[in-house]
């Protein structure tokens, strides 16, 4: 497999009255063709900011201040407006949290499909657009005759499926999903994600999946990146994130989700609050909330290191493989 998108040392700043706030700091990762990468973390940790940066959707006061985003070897940050316009939706498309606010309430679904095709010169006539839109509704299991309906006539789950159909209209290589199912009920959520997975197998696009629900992410993704206050602190295979966390933050996150099956354990969460990005201490950003923090952690910032068989982690005190099974760290006493 080859890297479809390669992000190198990406930095995104927000310019505020009190100076620059770095929302994404030196983040590097790759997404391979046909892979599902998840980004998890608390609100304000920069996961959505990365998603917006990948499509260059940021407007002032946000500013991409450094790094490279290579899509099939081309740096997106060097694109001019015209090539950006072609790149967006054709190569990378995005599904947002609120489907209703993505759809134009005064136009029919049919028109909105036509709008996409027309903007990219994908169809010659309205008739051709209708045929294509019908096919797309079919693949997301919406009856064809609903094509001429308005967004308000659909239920929440159907709207999100319409948005997914639109995102797939031009057969993109990468689909970014920013909390696509947070507003939906669990049954519909699972239905939609199963559908996306099935379509992924069919059309072989890659997915960047963003959510704060780690349980869901472990089920859906191949690899997961954990973010904390603008930095990537761990990237590993999805199962390993819960079973063999390396970073104490990942360990804490895994401890914050009660399970539906198995023994009921007392959980602890993570003490303290997320970092204020306008006032960043020296050393590791998580040190203040970390149970393993040492003097070294408070002074020097750890870099991402690759652990064979385990993945990447940015931590001076990488947890042993057995951390989760509880021999080395008794979960009840840690936090």
């Amino acid at each position: 497999m080859t890297a479809l998108i390669e992000v190198k040392n990406l930095c995104v700043d927000y310019i505020t009255l009190n100076g620059r706030v770095r929302a994404v700091n030196n983040v590097s990762f790759t997404i391979e063709e046909g892979e599902i990468l998840g980004l998890a973390g608390e609100s304000g940790c920069g996961k959505s900011t990365i998603a917006f940066a990948l499509m260059r959707l940021h407007r002032p006061p946000a500013l991409i201040s450094g790094g490279e985003i290579l899509f099939n070897g081309e740096n997106i940050l060097d694109f001019d407006e015209e090539s950006l316009r072609k790149f967006r939706w054709k190569d990378t498309s995005m599904v947002f949290q609120s489907a209703m606010s993505c759809l134009n309430p005064v136009k029919t679904i049919e028109y909105q499909f036509y709008d996409i095709f027309k903007a990219h010169g994908a169809v010659a006539s309205r008739q051709e657009s209708i045929v294509k839109a019908r096919e797309l509704l079919n693949i997301v299991d919406i009856p064809e005759e609903r094509l001429f309906d308005y967004p308000h006539q659909f239920s929440g789950g159907m709207r999100q499926r319409v948005v997914i159909a639109m995102a797939l209209a031009l057969k993109p290589k990468l689909l970014i999903m920013d909390e696509p199912t947070t507003a939906l009920d669990v049954v519909i959520q699972r239905e939609i994600l199963q559908k996306v997975y099935q379509l992924k197998q069919q059309f072989n696009f890659a997915v960047l999946f963003i959510t704060h629900d780690l349980s869901l992410m472990v089920e859906f993704c191949d690899r997961i990146g954990i973010m904390y206050s603008g930095q990537l602190v761990e990237v590993a295979e999805s199962k390993a994130i819960l079973t063999q966390p390396q970073h104490p933050y990942t360990f804490g996150l895994g401890n914050a989700f009660p399970t539906l099956t198995g023994e009921l354990k007392a959980m602890t969460g993570i003490p303290g609050m997320p970092l204020d990005l306008s006032n960043i201490p020296s050393g590791c950003r998580f040190a203040e909330r970390c149970f393993k923090a040492s003097e070294l952690c408070r002074q020097t910032e750890p870099a991402l290191h690759y652990q064979p068989e385990r993945g990447w982690a940015a931590c001076h005190q990488v947890l042993p493989v057995t951390a989760r099974t509880g021999q080395d760290i008794p979960t009840e006493d840690v936090y």
């Binding site: 669990v186 699972r190 239905e191 199963q194 349980s215 859906f220 989700f257 399970t259 539906l260 198995g262």
Partner: peptide, 11 residues
């Protein structure tokens, strides 16, 4: 069956 649970798979 629909609730997310890390012990399950999306499939």
């Amino acid at each position: 069956a629909a609730a997310p649970d890390p012990n399950r798979s999306i499939h």
